[in-house]
Design a protein around this nucleic acid. Sequence first.
DNA 1: CGGAAGATTTCT
DNA 2: GAAATCTTCCGA
Length: 197
Amino acid sequence: MIITRDFYQRDAVTVARSLLGLTLVHETEEGITKGIIVETEAYMGIKDPAAHSYKKSPSGRTNVQYGEGGYAYIYLIYGMYYCMNIVTNRADIPEVVLLRALEPIEGIDLMKKRRGTDKILNLCSGPGKLCSAMGITMDNYGTDLCGSQLYLEESEGCKTDGIVASRRINIDYAGEAKDYLWRFTIKDNKYISVKVK
DNA sequence: CGGAAGATTTCT
DNA sequence: GAAATCTTCCGA
């Protein structure tokens, strides 16, 4: 069952926690890839010094954040890697959830080809790797996640227990905000990004 | 208009 | 531990 718009129209922290255990699906010309979301981070817009939309005008790459929830927000980091975010909440509220890691479940051969590695544990264990494996690029910027190309669906036997909150990764520049417990992972999952805490 | 820095990954 | 590499933002 595909996740509907109202799922995304809540605050980013709630959505980030709820996303764990769901399946991300990307349909491309090369084939379909699917992965279970096992690691997320919430970025609370104007309240969050670590967010791209913090104290910034709604233009350029953050534009889509100011729309309603349920759209893909993609950006290029360090000139080399893409990161995929999900826009949450209502229009004019720039909150997003960063997808940090997936557990591959379908289209694994295609992921291996895109990533250039045979190690399944290394396919989606990080924001940049995840996008590379799924074939996500700036072409997906602003994609409607309630559409038929890039979307989320409920997983069978969805595990919602064992969710762990921790500090976010690589945002030391954000001052005290780096200590907010806005990163969510599935406990003991092998596929989360290697860095812990 | 120019410079600096970043929600990362990979290799040495 | 450092490089790769480019978009965006901020200051001049």
